[in-house]
Structures are given as C-alpha cells and as structure tokens.
Deep mutational scan, measured.
Amino acid sequence: RHRTIFTDEQLEALENLFQETKYPDVGTREQLARKVHLREEKVEVWFKNRRAKWRR
C-alpha cells in the first residue's frame, strides 16, 4: 500500500469538518468523501490519525 497524498483542497475540507466534529458519522464521512473524491475509508483513517495528533 502506498501513502495517500491529500491535496490542499482535500485537507482544507477535512480540517474544516474536524473543527465541527472530531467524530463524524459514516454518512457525514461518505458525503465528504464524495465531495473531495476520496474513499470513505481514507476519510475515516484521516480522522483517526488527526484525533491522535490532536490529543498529543
């Protein structure tokens, strides 16, 4: 597996949602994934990693 490289637009959308909710539900993740052309799984893992970074 290779590392996903997120575009600035994707990161902006992910960060904006993170400010709203640290734990978006699957529907919200799917909606964002469609909007920025990512797989929902990638969005889910990004949030998991972003929460870990936020806790540190």
Score class of each variant (00 low, 15 high):
Leu17His: 04
Glu15His: 06
Val26His: 14
Ala52Pro: 01
Tyr23Glu: 04
Gln10Met: 05
Gly27Leu: 07
Ile5Arg: 08
Ala52Glu: 11
Glu12Ile: 14
Arg34Gln: 15
Leu32Phe: 14
Thr7Asn: 06
Lys42Pro: 07
Thr7Arg: 04
Lys53Thr: 08
Arg50Phe: 01
Leu32Asp: 02
Trp46Glu: 00
Lys48Met: 10
Thr28Pro: 01
Thr21Lys: 04
Lys42Trp: 13
Val36Asp: 06
Leu14Asp: 15
Arg55Thr: 04
Leu17Tyr: 02
His2Ala: 08
Leu11Cys: 05
Ile5Asp: 15
Trp46Ala: 02
Tyr23Trp: 11
Gln19Cys: 11
Asn49Lys: 12
Leu11Val: 10
Pro24Trp: 03
Asp25Asn: 12
Gln19Ser: 14
Lys42Cys: 10
Glu15Met: 00
Glu30Ser: 13
Ala13Tyr: 03
Gln31Cys: 09
Glu44Thr: 10
Leu38Ser: 08
Leu32Val: 07
Phe18Glu: 01
Leu14Thr: 04
Ala33Gly: 12
Lys53Asn: 08
Leu32Asn: 07
Phe6Thr: 08
Val45His: 07
Arg29Lys: 05
Gly27Thr: 14
Trp54Thr: 11
Leu11Asp: 07
Gln31Arg: 09
Asp8His: 04
Phe47Val: 04
Pro24Phe: 02
Arg3Thr: 14
Phe47Asp: 00
Glu20Arg: 08
Leu38Pro: 01
Arg50Ala: 10
Trp46Ile: 00
Leu11Met: 02
Glu44Tyr: 08
Asp8Asn: 13
Ala52Tyr: 07
Leu11Pro: 01
Lys48Thr: 08
Ile5Thr: 14
Arg39Pro: 15
Arg1Asp: 11
Arg51Ser: 01
Leu38Trp: 00
Tyr23Ile: 02
Val26Ile: 15
Asn16Glu: 08
Trp54Glu: 14
Arg29Thr: 05
Lys53Pro: 03
Leu14Asn: 05
Leu14Val: 00
Phe18Val: 05
Ile5Phe: 12
Leu14Glu: 01
Val43Gly: 00
Asn49Ala: 11
Arg29Ala: 05
Glu9Arg: 11
Val36Trp: 15
Phe47Thr: 02
Glu44Asp: 13
Thr21Val: 13
Ile5Leu: 10
Lys53Arg: 11
Leu17Met: 07
Trp46Asp: 01
Ile5Trp: 11
Arg3Lys: 13
Thr4His: 12
Thr21His: 12
His2Ile: 12
Asp8Glu: 13
Lys53Gly: 08
Arg3Met: 14
Lys22Ser: 07
Asn16Met: 09
His2Thr: 15
Asn16Thr: 09
Lys22Met: 13
Arg51Phe: 07
His37Lys: 09
Lys48Ile: 03
Arg1Gln: 14
Val43Tyr: 00
Arg50Leu: 04
Glu41Ala: 09
Lys42Tyr: 14
Val43Asp: 00
Leu11Tyr: 04
Ala33Arg: 01
Ala13Lys: 02
Lys35Asp: 06
Arg51Asn: 00
Thr4Lys: 12
Phe6Ile: 11
Glu20Lys: 15
Lys22Gly: 05
Asp8Leu: 13
Leu38Val: 08
Arg50Lys: 07
Trp54Phe: 01
Val26Ser: 11
Tyr23Gln: 03
Val45Arg: 10
Phe18His: 00
Lys53Cys: 09
Ala13Gly: 08
Lys35His: 04
Phe18Met: 04
Pro24Gln: 02
Glu9Cys: 06
Val36Ala: 07
Leu17Gly: 02
Asp25Tyr: 03
Glu9Thr: 13
Trp46Met: 00
Val43Ile: 12
Tyr23Lys: 04
Ala52His: 04
Glu12Ala: 12
Lys53His: 10
Ala52Arg: 04
Lys48His: 06
Arg29Ile: 15
Ala52Cys: 03
Tyr23Gly: 00
Thr7Phe: 02
Arg51Leu: 03
Arg34Gly: 05
Thr4Arg: 06
Lys42Val: 14
Asn49Pro: 01
Trp46Tyr: 03
